[in-house]
Design a protein around this nucleic acid. Structure first.
Lengths: 343, 343
DNA sequence: CTCGGCCATTGACACGTTTTAATTCGCCGG
DNA sequence: CCGGCGAATTAAAACGTGTCAATGGCCGAG
């Protein structure tokens, strides 16, 4: 139709070029792509062949615009340098890839402003849904998304409203079992090295720790607290420096990265672990494999967390209405190793 | 259709609703968004205010469709469980976020098929450009993208064509300096524990290692090779098991994860590092902080790699034509620690 | 006072797809 | 022999924004 050559000029090949070449209407090509069952087998085959020959790739923007929804989802985590989050991300990416979805990755860097900015951007991109580990417990920070019908699933964070899905690990239980374990091993003066308590995970683990002391602890048991600004080995090292002045019996760290930093500093200063101080981490990340002292930790099904959350999100989006919102709560698992096992 | 939701307030406010409320035309609103300098300060302010009041968020699909390009870029890495890649990803995400771009994250899982599938999807999404650590040196696997005018920047991989950007670290030099270091410390029988040699990084480091032996090694120096299927601590452990039968003087691992696995196995079997065997890793990831023996490694500016590649990509995309394709080559840096320093 | 020029703004169309209502065609029951 | 029904296909109308030529108003030069 256009000017002259029906040929292979660089003009982008769209659905209508395919239609022309296959001798059908654009609408039929669209049907082949979206509802193959509605088109006769013969024409379907012909159209598919032409698509292959012409190297047609569908324009996602146009598709999303017209259909009102695309094949994009958002994933927002705190920190890409933390193996806990990247393992979750891997789970999410794997499942989404299997289902033909693409994942927009955002890091909030534990900053509320950056989280908001990213959420806005995700809304603009018209994502189908968002998986998010929120920075804070803000009440309706996702109103923007919900107004536009974008589903959200909380990742490693309890749902903020009943009609919302979430996939969580019981951090209170985790903190409880960690400190109970330390008490059983005879510790009385226990230090809790934590990231900002505004981060729910840190706060919950602390709560569990306190409960354990209250319930199972002898009268002289107590929890000292050291708070550092982020969950990195460096911060762990700083925390250990502060503890050196008066060493506790045991140190419970809010995650393994902190524990690694603590361990490093203790060993450098000649403090023996576990003989002098018991040490525990949290997350049971893979990279402590060759640590100087095998680290006792609290394991979470990290990768599975991501996968299941992703599944929930798609279920919520794809389903026409019969979707039951679920709040899934995993129980963590204590993994006892050398760092809490004196000879 | 959704019959349940009572929230009927959903009139989907678009550019024209804003225009109506502000008493201007849709075209002006669009200008406020895209070329603020062309609109008078007064009207601009009024429109912005209305945008805020109405909670307008622009429809990215429509925008991309009409403008022919969106604010999305793709990032494809081998493995999300590898800190090397996630550190790069963090660099990419940070810069893109600063510049107002969103990142679609893909993992190729070192599978060519999955890489191809992801590339196609990225093409469909109409990304502005793609950052990719390719799985193999396929000849023109990015033709699909280039035909559609989508720029690519090679991440930690040399450019495959002159008119392409790349950001790389000299892995041959890295392998060379690693093995030279081991030779200087007196090693003769050196083992190279590597991932698949089809992965360029592994192959290049091996090349450098061989060169070092040839150039600087005494006549009796030799390189034994152990190849494992992936770059994980687990595989490192298996490699070490194989080496136990006849221990080399030194072990050079293709990355730190392998080295951690090797270290673990050696220590478990009572082999002393570095007294009996010198050990080196590669990447200098942060998580070896508290390793049993501080690991000598070859450091790469990982995070910077990602940032700079991202900058290059945006430069290539945004620029009207005066963009000079750059192949940036970083030099790695030897970081000597305990694992190659016998007392 | 008039005219040309300039800037801010406008209006209408185009982007590539999905979707709905309409159309064709073959076939069967009456 | 006819009317009507269903399956397969089509034509055309959106979806929300960006772009560009065209419009209108304002000011200074003549």
């Amino acid at each position: 139709m256009a000017s002259s050559d029906p040929g292979q000029r660089d003009g982008t090949i769209g659905i209508k070029e395919v239609a022309l070449a296959a001798g059908v209407s654009p609408g039929t090509v669209s049907n082949v792509l979206n509802r193959p069952e509605r088109v006769a087998a013969a024409t379907r085959a012909r159209v598919m062949e032409v698509i292959g020959e012409l190297g047609f790739v569908r324009n996602g923007s146009a598709s999303s615009l017209r259909a009102g929804q695309g094949r994009l989802v958002g994933l927002m985590v705190h920190d890409l340098a933390n193996p806990f989050f990247t393992a979750m991300a891997a789970g999410v990416e794997d499942l989404m890839s299997e289902r033909g979805y693409a994942v927009i990755l955002c890091s909030s860097a534990t900053s509320v402003e950056r989280e908001d900015r990213n959420l806005r951007m995700l809304a603009e991109q018209g994502v189908r849904g968002v998986l998010v580990t929120p920075v804070e417990d803000g009440r309706d920070r996702f109103r923007l998304l919900h107004e536009r019908g974008i589903g959200t699933v909380m990742l490693d964070h309890a749902a903020t409203r009943p009609q919302q899905c979430s996939v969580t690990v019981d951090d209170v239980a985790g903190g409880h079992m960690a400190v109970t374990h330390l008490l059983e091993r005879g510790a009385r003066d226990i230090a809790y090295v934590s990231g900002p308590l505004s981060i729910r995970q840190c706060a919950d683990r602390r709560t569990g720790a306190l409960q354990a002391i209250e319930q199972a602890g002898p009268p002289d048991a107590a929890l000292r607290e050291v708070e550092v600004p982020d969950l990195t080995p460096r911060s762990g090292q700083r925390a250990a420096e502060r503890l050196l002045a008066e060493l506790p019996d045991a140190i419970f760290c809010a995650n393994d990265l902190l524990a690694m930093g603590v361990l490093r500093e203790l060993l450098q200063q000649g403090v023996r672990v576990p003989e002098r101080v018991l040490l525990m981490g949290y997350d049971d990340i893979e990279f402590t494999t060759a640590s100087a002292v095998q680290l006792t930790s609290v394991r979470q099904p990290t990768y599975q967390l991501g996968r299941i959350a992703a599944e929930l999100l798609l279920d919520e989006c794809d389903d026409t209405g019969g979707h039951a919102h679920q709040q899934i709560l995993f129980q963590p698992e204590l993994v006892v190793r050398e760092s809490t096992t004196p000879a």
